[in-house]
Write a protein that binds this DNA or RNA. Structure first.
Length: 1051
RNA sequence: GGGCGCUUAGCUCAGUUGGCUAGAGCAUCUCGUUUACACCGAGAGGGUCGGGGGUUCGAGUCCCUCAGCGCCCA
């Protein structure tokens, strides 16, 4: 930037278009920022760090508006902090999203090539998924760039890359060494389609119509008086093949009484509409007591006496046991127990030490345990079991019933509870540490209410199942070998530790006792007594090879995807290396995310941060709202209601998208965003509301022009050939218009910079409007800073919008038109305008980086030097400019009041003009009756009434007399008389005044009532009472004026 | 079943610790193309703040209750 040219030449107006060409500008500016290296930071001990790690988007697909919101909010913070002088790092990257991505690619392969993963093999499948990942990662990062995200792209990470893999290995090794990781047989959620365990968080309960089957199991050798059968009821008849007991409640009488008293309690509090239902329940319970209690107690006694039942079809004797899981108030009061295939039964099985018979193969078919039912699917088995029992006369009843069916949210198949060996992380100690730092607010979650969910989830301290039977992910770094006996085991341990590549630093040996505790059974099943596990820390080919040579085999399973995500804040910074980045940028400053992953991700990051570094991963967590579609549903890829941010950007520009997003971010509310397809046909442009029906279609027909267009779901050639109909929402129009308004106000400024020279300004030379805009700037910049720092994005955008539009454009710039007309006033006006615009651009930059940068660089052409009391060269790029730091002295409440008087008088004049239907150019005269002080405060702005309301002020002060024919407005303790000689529309004026009269009278009655209330006057704070009195007095004056005017008009 | 949130203008939403006549944008109506901007300007109409009850001098705001909607957990 040259400093020699002290005066500017005004640009040719044709140079600056009247619309902001965001499409071109965004590309150029983003390239500028990149080449300028603005996004990249190095550790720098002279600067304070500010760090955000991106919630890494899943490479399952492209981003939607939910992500746009999330990333906009992060970029706003990063840009703010960068301007505030922090060493701001935004760490980008993507997540391999294990099961989700593998499921998607597998489905694609199946659809397109009719092949399964087993047809391809592990290596080929992983290769295919990597291909997919490359494609979607590029798309995702491209979307982020188009949104203007200022991530440090040089540092982009992927949760499955080498750096992250190393962190995973080190963490796993450490936890293994601390014995926090163990393997064990547990009942897990099994996805038979994908052939893997899924966590509770990946299971969705879906209400479906089902049945309740009642079966009779024969009693073996019943004693006289005892029933020949026990009846059980189930929603899953096929699982009876794995039954190992039938349970009855140990104290049915007490259980029934308890339920009854609970119902009675409920009845007391029940709403009128519920009472009948509860009463019926109580009645039914009482009937049950008289009819069934005796037989339940008899069964209980039989159980205690060791009576056995014969499991039909399998002809296996199973015991009748007592357990509280049996509910005497439900069904027959007895329940069949299938420990290996139902979570509740599993608990019963553990309590009663029952055998656990697994009847299922990993692919969901029945195994050899089921005899003739082997290799049937669950569905086929159900039909056959029910039929066979019926044939035996043991099917008693079939009821219709609504049931909650657990389904895998990845594949949509019903979940089978399945007993398998899995790896777990013990959560007790780890969870506690993560609870402590949130309880103590060392990690501050806002809005605060979300801390509750975090704490209660961790409080359960449920062990974390981390193994997944997938191929896409971090393979568990454990090599194992079964050891038939203790001495084999000891020998093998010695063999391992004796390997030359072995050292305690990089490997640890752990011995797992068989989960089958009964030695006889172990022998029968051919299970070894022990399994020896060796966990290896780093890629150490030598040791791995050596282990394989002596017969150890690497665990095939991979880790839950959240295991690597949990390390994200430090793995991305290079941990376990002690990198300068880690030292400088960790702990990170803020984590900005959505509420649905507080437990899955946020909690686990805190756990791992504390475990691996002994430090929290971030100081502050901000949970932002969710974007809902027009039907109030959250946007998601699976529902198909996600909107591509690029649609919005194409239509309205990235700044509009960002401003819109920030403007939606209030503390309490999720945001409903009804969207429409826009017909791409140039002549049509018809908008079609998006519905649940059409939102997943690849092509949609336009009802207006009858032509079809494609959507984001188009994949087939014939669909892609159609023009693309983008999704749009009018909610971004406001922001787009705002962008353009700002652009044009700046355009105006620059068109008027002819002869601009920078120079310090004397405070005394500032006009009222100068001081007003400066005072407002102080207030606005303070408020915006405070709002943003506390994540109150919508508050910040609203303040900026109102200031820029209503203060800066509608008043300040309008007034300047008058001053620019006078060559003597011009240089000064230019300087103040340039300064105010400069500050406004800075304030808007974090939210709308492109348009502000574009204007800034234009402004640098005409006014490279700017300032108020001292003059400085502006930075080349706005992204690197300093955040406004206005001196408090520029704030003045008096000036703001003074200016408000002008605004109010101007408003009155305009209203009268409008009501009187005066042509805009028709000049009128007016005068103001007010006290001298008021007149003095208004007089500096007297001339602006002419340019802004085509009204000439002819007199002002206590002696002003109303002209013969006039319209009068009384407010704020003054009277404005507009001379309407020869112009007046009496009827309109009477109508206006009558309305005023009515309103004033209403208000007066209200206030008088309030003030005549003795209690109000005595209890309310004196300033409130005084305010009411003043306001009443003013209203009365106003009313008198209105009445007088009316009287005169009516003649 | 438990927890959290929401209900304010036709639509989408603001409304800090209770206190001036409840705000904005869009939509609607009237007027307007005066050289920054019609993606604009000036003005207007539109709300018994979901229903009921309570606390208070005073409630959109606090408490209770009913109704409806949404999310999370079981």
């Amino acid at each position: 930037m040259t400093t020699e040219s002290k005066t500017a030449t005004a640009p040719d107006p044709a140079d600056i278009p009247s619309r902001f060409d965001f499409e071109t500008a965004e590309k150029e500016i983003y390239a500028d920022w990149l080449s300028g290296g603005w996004f990249h930071t190095e550790p720098d001990s002279t600067k304070k760090p500010y760090t955000i790690v991106i919630p890494p988007p899943n490479v399952t697909g492209a981003l939607h508006l939910g992500h746009a919101l999330n990333n906009t909010l992060q970029d706003i913070m990063i840009r703010l902090k960068r301007m505030q002088g922090f060493n701001a790092l935004w760490m980008p990257g993507t997540d391999h999203a294990g099961i989700a991505t593998q499921a998607r690619v597998e489905k694609r392969i199946k659809d397109q090539e009719k092949k399964t993963r087993h047809d391809l093999g592990r290596e080929e499948l992983v290769r295919r998924i990597f291909e997919w990942k490359e494609q979607y990662e590029a798309r995702i990062l491209g979307q982020l760039k188009q949104m203007g995200c200022s991530c440090d792209w040089d540092r982009t990470r992927f949760t499955l890359d080498d750096v992250c893999a190393r962190a995973v290995r080190h963490t796993f090794f450490d936890l293994f060494k601390k014995s926090y990781i163990y393997r064990g047989k547990r009942l897990v959620n099994w996805d038979t389609y994908l052939g893997t365990t899924v966590s509770d968080d990946e299971v969705e309960n879906k209400p479906v119509k089902g049945n309740f089957w009642h079966f009779m199991y024969p009693v073996i050798d019943p004693k006289p008086g005892e029933p020949p059968h026990v009846t059980v009821a189930t929603t899953r008849p096929e699982t009876m093949l794995g039954d190992t007991a039938v349970a009855v409640h140990p104290d049915p009488a007490a259980a029934l009484s308890k339920v009854e008293s609970e119902l009675k309690e409920k009845l007391k509090k029940a709403a009128a509409s519920e009472i009948e239902g509860v009463e019926q329940q109580i009645e039914a319970l009482q009937t049950r007591r008289t009819e069934m209690l005796a037989s339940l107690e008899q069964l209980r006694d039989m159980a205690n006496d060791g009576r056995m039942l014969m499991l039909p079809l399998m002809d296996r004797p199973i015991p009748l046991v007592t357990d509280v899981w049996a509910k005497p108030e439900l069904g027959s009061g007895c329940v069949k127990i299938t420990p290996a295939h139902d979570p509740n039964d599993y608990e019963v099985g553990k309590r009663a030490d029952l055998p656990m018979v697994n009847i299922m193969n990993a692919d969901g078919t029945l195994n050899a345990e089921t005899g003739k039912y082997q290799s049937l699917s669950m569905k086929q088995a159900r039909k056959k079991v029910v039929g066979d029992l019926e044939a035996l006369g043991l099917l008693k009843d079939i009821e219709d019933r609504d049931i909650e069916l657990p389904v895998s949210d990845r594949s949509g198949t019903p979940i089978e509870p399945y007993l398998t060996d899995q790896w777990f992380v013990k959560m007790n100690t780890l969870a506690q540490s993560a609870m402590d730092v949130v309880a103590s607010k060392e990690v501050k979650i806002s809005p605060e209410r979300y801390a509750k969910g975090y704490l209660s989830w961790l409080g359960e301290k449920r062990d974390w199942p981390i193994s997944r039977q997938l191929w896409w992910g971090h393979q568990i770094p454990v090599w194992s070998i079964p050891c038939p006996t203790q001495s084999d085991c000891d020998a093998m341990r010695d063999k391992v530790t004796g390997l030359s590549a072995y050292s305690d630093d990089i490997a640890v040996v752990e011995i797992e006792a068989s989960s089958e505790t009964d030695p006889k059974k172990r022998k029968q099943l051919g299970l070894p007594d022990f399994t020896l596990h060796v966990c290896v820390q780093d890629e150490s080919e030598e040791l791995e090879k050596a282990l394989q040579e002596i017969g150890l085999v690497r665990e095939e399973d991979v880790l839950d995807t959240w295991f690597s995500s949990a390390l994200w804040p430090h793995s991305t910074l290079g941990w376990p290396e002690k990198t300068p980045e880690l030292k400088h940028f960790y702990p990170t400053s803020a984590l900005i995310t959505s509420r649905d992953i507080i437990t899955l991700w946020v909690a686990r990051m805190v756990i791992m941060g504390l475990n691996n570094l002994g430090q929290i991963p971030f100081d502050s967590v901000f949970i932002h709202p969710k974007i809902l579609d027009g039907n109030g549903e959250t946007m998601s890829k699976s529902k198909g209601n996600g909107i591509d941010p690029l649609d919005v950007i194409d239509n309205f520009g990235a700044d509009a998208l960002r401003f819109g997003m920030a403007d939606l971010t209030t503390e309490t509310q999720d945001v409903r965003l009804p969207v429409k397809y826009e017909c791409p046909n140039e002549q049509c442009k018809h908008q079609i509301v998006q519905t649940v029906k059409n939102r997943t279609l690849a092509r949609v027909g336009c009802p207006k022009c009858n032509k079809e267009f494609s959507t984001q779901w188009a994949e087939k050639e014939e669909d892609l050939a159609l023009p693309r109909g983008p999704v749009t929402s009018e909610r971004f129009e406001v922001a787009r218009n705002f962008t353009n308004k700002l652009w044009n106000a700046s355009r105006f400024a620059m068109l008027n910079l002819e002869g601009y020279s920078a120079a310090p300004i004397n405070e005394a030379d500032l006009t009222v409007e100068d001081r007003w805009i400066l005072s407002r700037l102080v207030t606005v910049s303070n408020n915006v800073t405070e709002s943003l720092e506390n994540y109150r994005y919508a508050q910040a955008t609203r303040e900026l919008y109102d200031f820029a539009w209503d203060n800066f454009c509608s008043f300040f710039v309008e007034i300047l038109k008058d001053r620019f007309a006078n060559p003597d006033l011009r240089p000064h006006a230019q300087r103040v305008l340039v300064f105010a615009l400069d500050q406004l651009l800075r304030l808007l930059h974090p939210v709308m980086p492109f348009v502000t940068e574009a204007i800034w660089q234009q402004l640098n052409r005409f006014a490279p030097e700017r300032g108020l009391e001292s003059v400085q060269n502006a930075t080349d790029c706005l992204i690197g400019a300093q955040w406004p730091q206005l001196e408090a002295k520029w704030y003045s409440a008096d000036i703001e009041t003074q200016f408000a008087r002008f605004q109010s008088a101007l408003g009155s004049l305009r209203e009268i003009r409008s009501r009187q239907n005066l042509p805009p150019k028709k000049e009128v005269k007016f005068s103001i009756g007010c006290d001298q002080a008021y007149a003095d405060s208004l007089s500096p702005m007297a001339s602006y009434f002419k340019s802004m309301a085509a009204a000439e002020l002819t007199g002002m002060g206590p002696d002003v007399q109303p002209p013969e024919t006039n319209a009068t407005v009384a407010s704020d303790g003054i009277e404005i008389f507009v001379d309407l000689e020869g112009l007046i529309d009496k009827a309109a004026e009477i109508k206006r005044l009558e309305k005023e009269e009515k309103k004033a009278e209403g208000n007066i009655i209200g206030k008088e009532k309030k003030l005549s209330n003795e209690k109000f006057v005595s209890s309310a704070p004196p300033e409130i009472v005084q305010r009411e009195r003043d306001s009443l007095a003013q209203l009365k004056e106003q009313l008198a004026t209105v009445k007088a005017s009316l009287k005169k008009l009516r003649g």
